[in-house]
């Protein structure tokens, strides 16, 4: 059984192309994915560029339509090091 990813609040919005959010990765007990963490990607964020802060408190920190806007957003958040992926279109992002 999965529990919803917690959205700990929107940090800021800059126009329509950029949205900064903070989401915790939650552990799932879904069969076959027991050690995976997941975050539910809202429809408006699916297929967008996504920055995940690195370290023990792994969090999705920003979504944006363009790679350049995402870099700017994540740097502005000042969360330290982060990595970048494209958010899946199916709605849920799993991590091992």
């Amino acid at each position: 059984m999965e529990s919803e990813a917690k959205n700990s609040g929107q940090i800021g919005v800059d126009g329509n192309s950029l949205q900064l959010v903070e989401k915790s990765m939650r552990r799932t007990r879904k069969r076959g994915l027991k050690n995976s963490a997941f975050v539910r990607i809202e429809r408006k964020h699916q297929g967008k560029f996504l920055a995940i802060s690195r370290g023990p408190d792994k969090k999705v920190v920003a979504f944006a339509d363009s790679y350049g806007a995402l870099l700017e957003a994540a740097n502005r958040l000042g969360v330290g090091d982060f990595s970048i992926i494209t958010a899946p279109r199916q709605g849920v992002l799993y991590s091992h």
């Binding site: 920055a51 790679y67 350049g68 870099l71 990595s83 970048i84 992926i85």
Partner: peptide, 21 residues
């Protein structure tokens, strides 16, 4: 760049990344 998660795409003739990179 920052670490980027890239698809291994046997159907792609080359490596493709967004221009902002």
């Amino acid at each position: 760049t920052k670490p980027l998660l890239a698809k291994v795409d046997t159907g792609a003739d080359a490596c493709f990344f967004p221009a902002d990179v």
